[in-house]
Design a protein around this nucleic acid. Structure first.
Lengths: 137, 137
DNA sequence: TATAATTCCTCTAGTTACTAGAGGTTCAAG
DNA sequence: CTTGAACCTCTAGTAACTAGAGGAATTATA
């Protein structure tokens, strides 16, 4: 069991952000020591790491709540779990596609080794085209 | 040349968001018709699509400004372009890794076809582990 | 063991990136 | 030529943090 500051260091999530996640119910209310300070275990650290990564990947809090519900409820009926998993899959796959295109273009720029200028650059085109989107827009 | 409403429909970006992007300098100030209304061309549409996708992928506005600078300046020296490209690459590659792990786990859940309950679920573990992170944290 | 520095607490207010609404003007269909 | 939709600017609200004030608890140092 460790303090909020220690948890913050281990997860690279800021202390006020941890308290904020608790407030909105993304993290459970932790135990408190005799002085009233929060004490955390590794289960919370694990959960917080998930939240942090998911946020970095552009998922909304509500999105994350839904993903967490898959982990939270081992008693969840398959049909419900499948519905949630499928609802997220195509979105995630189009994110992977878009990132891959952008990465390819950045690799091309990085490998463009002549001293001089870049010439035409397709970074913008890599994400601007909708041809590779799986979502509805 | 078309209106802001048409641009909004074509890019799925809301009208006030387009005006906001203009205000913060992510989009150029567009031409205006005699009545003072904004008129857009496809170059702006292209740029806006890039911004929208990049935001969906969790990049900050400043991040996007830096990526756009690669496209904006065909006269940029290679060294500078390489620096920017490399600064973004490892971040993007770790995003791809994390998303792939999450997608794999969601596929596993989707294929788990017995009628009943889900049993143990590794959605949380898929993103909680730092083992696959390329970034420093 | 005293005391000083650090970290914690709650609460309020500020920031980023939008998003919605008020009040008024311009456009475009009939 | 009207009238309703779409546009304008400006202000205010929301989501997801982030920082700061004022004070209590903990930990490090003398």
């Amino acid at each position: 069991m460790y303090s909020i500051g220690t948890l913050a260091k281990r997860t690279k999530v800021k202390v006020p952000t941890i308290r904020y996640y608790e407030e909105i119910g993304l993290l459970p209310e932790p135990e408190r020591n005799t002085g009233g300070q929060r004490r955390y275990d590794n289960a919370t650290k694990h959960r917080l790491n998930f939240v942090r990564h998911a946020r970095d990947l552009g998922f909304s809090i509500e999105h994350i709540r839904s993903l967490l519900s898959l982990s939270e409820r081992p008693d969840m009926p398959c049909a419900e779990a499948h519905r949630i998993a499928k609802a997220h899959l195509s979105d995630i796959q189009s994110k992977i596609n878009a990132l891959t295109l952008l990465a390819d273009e950045l690799v091309r720029i990085s490998n463009h080794s002549e001293i001089g200028v870049l010439g035409e650059c397709n970074v913008l085109a890599s994400l601007a085209d909708h041809a590779h989107c799986l979502t509805e827009h």
